[in-house]
Structures are given as structure tokens and as C-alpha cells.
């Protein structure tokens, strides 16, 4: 028996399609179904239409968590990109210990985010954290600072830890892009009398632009879905100061056991992420990702 090309194609793609259906389509479908039901172990399940969405969108907690998430992304992503470029430029230079530095700086990224959160918790702890001890011993502070129990400082702590965990990957990506920029361009620019900033602006930046876009998109998604660090470091507190959308979803689903509302939140986060990505992609200058050629 001979299969037609289209049948053979379907047959060959079937295993992957089944996997996609099991691990993507079913969870998405299940989340949509749950988001329109009361789903709790202690309350009887019933269809409620869009009520869960109304409850979520009408609640102050969602708005707070959404703003906290957006603020977090707005601060961390530009910082990460800027620091990533600076770090990559440093690592791209030749100096003694360069290889060791490259290996060492990847370590924070290799750590699970929860572990990083716990390590930094010991740094920021109010009464006996390493940071307070260091600052106090050095005479910079007279009293210990409540890093994790003061809203603004706790938010700053989460930002610091997030950047600490994400910077290595960002820098490595950008370093790879830097190393792909032809060296002769720099030579030519030097001959033409271009200075350091001129070379950076006219050669380096255009050369790494596609990677900058990818890094920005990736870090935006990571910031929007940041959960582990908040869970390990602040548990959304103090109050709700560091409660972001993913943490809020977890609390609704697994602490309050309201899987209907949790699913509605998950759907909204997915849609929100999609919108943010679309906006970012639209905002990318034409040709930023692919060099156009005649």
C-alpha cells in the first residue's frame, strides 16, 4: 500500500500532534473550562459563565497585582538589557581571568530561582541578614534596615534578585551576538577616525540589535511570569507589595483552593502576555530581527 504524500505527512506528524494535544491543547481547554465554573474541593462545582472573570477584573487585588507586575517588568527589563550589554562588552575584552569570569558569572543563572530567593533572603533578612550586618559593621547604618518588611524596599529586593538571576543569560546571549560582529568593521571605523562611542553606536548596536530584541522579549516574559523569587523571598508581602499576577494566581488556586478564579487569572495572564508581546513585536523597527537584503 502506498500512502499519498499528504497522508504520509499527517501520519509522520501525528506523534507530535498528539503530544501537543496532550500537553498544550488539553491544559488550555481545561483552564478555559475551569475558568467558567466554581471549582473548589469544598464547594459544589457549577457553571458560572464569566462570573470568575468579572470577580477577578472587578477586584482590587487583581488591579494591584497587575500594576505591580507591569512596574516590575518596566524596571527590570531595561535594566537587564543595559547591564547585559555592559557585561557582554566587558567579557568581550581580552584580559587575564576573562575565561574564569565568564564561567563564574553563569553560576547565578544555573541556580534554581527558588534557591536564589532563599540565598538572598539570608542577605536581606531584617535582624540578622548579611547586608544589614555588613552595613552596620561598616558604619553605614545605625539601625538595621527592614528590607523585606518595608513595601518599597521589598520590591527593590525582588528586583535585585531577579536581575541577579537573569543577568548571566542576558550577558551570554549578547556576548554571542557581539562576537558575531565582524572585527574588520571596527578596524575600518578606527581608520575612519570613529571614537569608542561612535563605534558602539554605529557598529556594535546595529550588530547586536536582533539579539537585543530577543533578549528584551524573553526578559519581558520572564518578568511577567516571575513567581519563584517572590515565593521564596517575600511570599508576596509585605501585605501585597510584591504580589505579582502569577503569585496571585497561585494563591487563588492553591491557597484559597479557588481553581475557577485561578484558571480565569491564568487565562487573563496568557492573553495579557500575548498582547504585550504583540505590542513589543509591533514596536520593533522594521528589519531589526532580520537584515533586509536587496
Amino acid at each position: 500500500m502506498t500512502l499519498s504524500p499528504s497522508s504520509a505527512g499527517i501520519l509522520m506528524a501525528a506523534p507530535v500532534l498528539v503530544l501537543v494535544a496532550v500537553f498544550t491543547l488539553y491544559p488550555v481547554g481545561r483552564a478555559l473550562y475551569q475558568s467558567m465554573h466554581i471549582e473548589s474541593p469544598i464547594f459544589p462545582s457549577r457553571f458560572v459563565g464569566l462570573q470568575n472573570y468579572q470577580n477577578v477584573l472587578g477586584g482590587r487585588y487583581f488591579t494591584d497585582a497587575a500594576w505591580t507586575t507591569l512596574r516590575f517588568a518596566a524596571v527590570t527589563v531595561p535594566l537587564l538589557v543595559a547591564l547585559g550589554v555592559l557585561t557582554a562588552l566587558l567579557l568581550n575584552e581580552s584580559f587575564v581571568g576573562n575565561t574564569l569570569l565568564r564561567v563564574g558569572m553563569i553560576l547565578p543563572w544555573a541556580l534554581p530561582a527558588t534557591v536564589a530567593g532563599l540565598i538572598w533572603k539570608w542577605v536581606f533578612l531584617d535582624s540578622w541578614g548579611a547586608l544589614n550586618a555588613g552595613l552596620y559593621t561598616a558604619g553605614f547604618i545605625d539601625n538595621y534596615v527592614a528590607w523585606l518588611t518595608t513595601p518599597r524596599l521589598a520590591q527593590m529586593a525582588v528586583i535585585v534578585v531577579f536581575i541577579w538571576t537573569q543577568l548571566p543569560l542576558t550577558a551570554v546571549f549578547l556576548l554571542a551576538a557581539l562576537q558575531a560582529v565582524p572585527a574588520e568593521l571596527y578596524d575600518a571605523a578606527a581608520v575612519d577616525g570613529a571614537g569608542v562611542f561612535g563605534r558602539f553606536w554605529n557598529i556594535t548596536l546595529p550588530g547586536i540589535r536582533p539579539m537585543l530584541v530577543i533578549v528584551a522579549l524573553y526578559e519581558t516574559l520572564m518578568a511577567i511570569t516571575n513567581f519563584d523569587i517572590v515565593y521564596a523571598l517575600t511570599q508576596g508581602g509585605p501585605g501585597t507589595a510584591t504580589t505579582m499576577l502569577t503569585y496571585f494566581t497561585w494563591v487563588e488556586s492553591f491557597k484559597k483552593l479557588d481553581f475557577g478564579v485561578g484558571s480565569a487569572l491564568a487565562v487573563l495572564i496568557a492573553l495579557g502576555s500575548l498582547v504585550v508581546i504583540l505590542i513589543l513585536v509591533r514596536a520593533i523597527p522594521k528589519g531589526a530581527l532580520v537584515e533586509e537584503r536587496a
Binding site: 513595601p151 501585605g239 501585597t240 507589595a241
Partner: peptide, 23 residues
């Protein structure tokens, strides 16, 4: 009460917000 455990998950953040001066 049956819902004590679940209610606690609402109460704790509220208490946290009050302690943080947010409410």
C-alpha cells in the same frame, strides 16, 4: 468552621497590608 483554612488565606494578606500601612 469548614472554611477557616481558606479564609486564613484572605486574612493573612489583609493583615499584612495593614501591618505594611497599605490599609
Amino acid at each position: 468552621a469548614i472554611w477557616y483554612g481558606i479564609w486564613s488565606e484572605s486574612f493573612h494578606p489583609l493583615l499584612g497590608q495593614a501591618l505594611a500601612g497599605e490599609i
